[in-house]
């Protein structure tokens, strides 16, 4: 089947993505090890887990700002912008993942040079990157310098609330990671998304492109009909 390659993942983004993945894994493993520490069943020795967690957290903060500047000052940023009609598109994509994917329906938002992410990816990545990750590193830095934390918040220990927020955000990231790993396999083939993140090129297959054109035409004709 004929394919077309488009360069969607520049090197700076791939480096960030893979470094981020390693740091997230290190943080989750060491975080779980500390949170569920047990003298009889140590996952990672506590002091080692603390050091690795602290260093990875510092690097994750730097990595976040590298990514933040990247999306601000390169054209990649446009893929994260949620456009008008987002929620309708979101439900269309959710319907596809829940039902259409099993029936072999065409992808409602196939990847092309102007649309790297479908609406679910868009909102997930935005929430993870711009809400949950900042919560983890802001609370993480606060816990690294606990003297900066307010002692008592409405009768509860400020450190306890900060830790709770930190752990909850970390947990959400770990859930995201599992789903994200699974979605690697939801490409044209099981490994095509993985290859794209290594080479930077996304393969557009003829049938996908056909679907894409069909969809675009469909939506164009619908819009024309409405305006008439």
């Amino acid at each position: 089947m004929a394919t077309k390659k488009i360069y969607l993942y520049p090197l700076w983004l791939r480096i960030w993505h893979h470094v981020n993945a390693v740091l997230m894994l290190a943080l989750i493993l060491t975080g779980v090890s500390m949170q569920y520490s047990n003298p009889d069943y140590p996952l990672i020795r506590f002091d080692i887990a603390v050091s690795v967690h602290n260093i990875s957290g510092i690097l994750l903060t730097l990595s976040y700002f590298y990514f933040f500047l990247g999306i601000l000052f390169t054209s990649i940023g446009r893929h994260y912008v949620m456009k008008q009609g987002f929620f309708k598109a979101f439900f269309l994509q959710a319907k596809y993942y829940l039902f259409g994917i099993f029936r072999g329906d065409p992808h409602p938002f196939p990847v092309n040079a102007e649309r790297k992410f479908n609406p679910i990816q868009q909102i997930t990545y935005n929430v993870i990157q711009h809400a949950i990750t900042p919560v983890t590193f802001i609370t993480g830095w606060a816990l690294l310098y606990p003297e900066t934390i307010i002692l008592n918040v409405f009768g509860y220990s400020g450190i306890m609330l900060t830790s709770l927020l930190h752990v909850a955000a970390g947990f959400l990231i770990s859930v995201f990671l599992v789903i994200h790993l699974y979605f690697i396999t939801v490409g044209h083939s099981v490994t095509s998304n993985l290859k794209s993140m290594i080479t930077g090129y996304h393969e557009i297959h003829e049938d996908e492109e056909k679907d894409s054109i069909e969809n675009e035409e469909k939506s164009t004709s619908e819009n024309t009909g409405k305006s008439n």
Binding site: Y80, I138, N152, V153, G155
Partner: peptide, 23 residues
């Protein structure tokens, strides 16, 4: 000019802690 930045600024950086009650 940088809508991605707008998304990042509006969805991110949640204020965390307030009020002091010392005993």
């Amino acid at each position: 000019k940088r809508p991605a930045g707008w998304v990042a600024l509006t969805t991110g950086f949640i204020p965390l802690l307030f009020a002091i009650f010392l005993s």
